[in-house]
Amino acid sequence: MENNSNKEGKSKGKLLKLMLKIVITALCFWYISKKIDFSDVWIALLKANWLLLGIAVLLYALSKLLSAFRLNIYFRNISLFISEWDNIKLYWLGMFYNLFLPGAIGGDAYKVIILNKKFKASYKKTTSAVLLDRFSGLLALGVILCAYAIAVINETLVDAVMVSGAFVGVGIFYLAIRSFFKDFIAGFWPTFFWGLAVQLCQVICIYFIMASLGVPLQHEWILIFLLASIVSVFPVSLGGGLGTRELVFAEGARFFHLDPHIGVIISLLFYLCNVLSCVWGAYYIFNDPLKNVDVPAGVADLQPEVSEKGF
C-alpha cells in the first residue's frame, strides 16, 4: 500500500509540474500578445528566406552533434566506452524526450537509466556526467555572453565585470570538479572548448535566422539570444524554454530599442530549428539506440539489475 501511495504521489507531482509548465508558457504568450501583433509576426515568417533557414537548422543540428561529442568525453572519464555513433543516437533520443515529452521521463534521466541497464554503470557517476555536461555548456554560454556584453554595452565598468566574471566562472567550475568530481578533471578543458564550439554554432545559427528575415546583423540580438538561452535552462515552461525565450526576446528588444516583433520571430524560428533537429530522435523510441553495442564480458555479473524505481 505504501509503495502504491508513493507511486500515486509521484504521478500527481509530475502532473502538477506539467500543468505548471503549461500555465507559465500560456502566460508568457498571453503577455507577449499584449505587446505585439502576431499577425505581423506571421506575415514576416512567410516572407523569410527558407534556404537560409535550412542552413540555420543544419547549424543547430551540428551544435547538438558537438554536444554529443562533449558528453562522450565525460563518459570516457568514468570508463564508460561508447562509440561516437552509438552515443549520438542515444543523445538524439534524449533530445526528443526533453522537447516532446515534458511530462514523461526527461532525456537526461533516460540516458542514465539505459546506461545502467546496458553496462551496469553507476547511477551516481552517469548522473554526474550528464549534469556536468549541462553545466559545461552553461559555462561556455556565459563566457560568450560576457564577450557580447562587452561588444554591445562598451563601458569600462561593464567590461571589467564581464572579464572578471568569465575568469571567475571558469575558475569556480574547475575547482568544483577538482574537489568534488575528480573522475572528470581530465575532461575539463576538452569539454569546455567543445562547449564553446556548441554555443558558437548556435550563435551563427541566429545570424542565419536574422539574414533569412533581412534583419541587420546587430550584436544586440545575439546578446538577447544568449540571455534567453540562460533563462530557458530553467525547466519552468514547455519544450525547453518555449514562451520564456520569446518573452526575453520581446523585452530585450524593447530594452535595446529594437523591434519586438522581430525578436519574437527570431525566437520562434530558433525553436523551429530545435524541433526539426530533435524530431528524428523519435526513431530510436522503437529502435534501441544501443542494440548493437557489445557489452564487455562479465559486466552483466557485476551487480544485480537496478530497476527504474531506483533512479
Rank of each mutant, 00 (worst) to 15 (best):
N4W: 02
S5E: 13
E8D: 11
G9C: 01
G9E: 08
K10N: 04
K14W: 02
K14T: 05
L15C: 00
M19L: 15
M19I: 14
L20C: 13
K21I: 02
A26T: 14
C28D: 01
Y31W: 12
Y31F: 12
Y31E: 06
I32R: 08
I32D: 02
S33D: 09
K34Q: 14
W42G: 07
I43V: 14
L45H: 04
L46N: 12
L51S: 15
L52V: 08
L53S: 02
I55Y: 08
V57N: 11
Y60C: 08
L62C: 12
L66Y: 14
F69W: 11
N72F: 08
I73W: 11
Y74T: 02
N77C: 12
S79E: 15
S79P: 08
L80C: 03
F81A: 05
N87G: 13
N87A: 14
G94V: 02
L99N: 13
L101I: 14
D108N: 10
D108A: 10
A109P: 12
K111Y: 05
I113V: 15
I113Q: 14
K124M: 13
T127V: 08
S128P: 10
S136M: 15
G137T: 10
G142Y: 05
V143W: 03
L145A: 07
A147P: 03
A147Q: 09
N154C: 07
T156N: 12
L157D: 09
D159G: 03
V163A: 06
G169I: 00
G169P: 00
G169N: 00
V170D: 03
L175V: 12
L175G: 00
L175R: 01
L175P: 01
A186G: 12
F188I: 06
F188A: 04
P190V: 00
T191H: 01
C205M: 12
I209G: 08
A211I: 06
S212D: 07
L213P: 01
L213F: 01
P216D: 09
P216Y: 07
Q218M: 14
W221R: 08
I222P: 05
I224F: 09
F225N: 11
I230E: 05
I230D: 11
S232D: 06
V233Q: 01
V233N: 05
F234I: 15
P235Q: 04
L238R: 00
G239S: 14
G243N: 05
T244D: 04
V248M: 10
V248H: 10
F256P: 07
F256T: 07
D259N: 14
P260T: 02
H261R: 11
H261Q: 13
S267K: 10
Y271E: 06
L272Y: 04
C273H: 01
L276P: 06
C278W: 11
A282Q: 10
Y283F: 12
P289Q: 00
A297G: 05
A297R: 11
G298Q: 03
D301M: 11
Q303R: 10
Q303G: 09
V306W: 01
V306A: 08
S307Q: 06
G310D: 03
F311P: 05
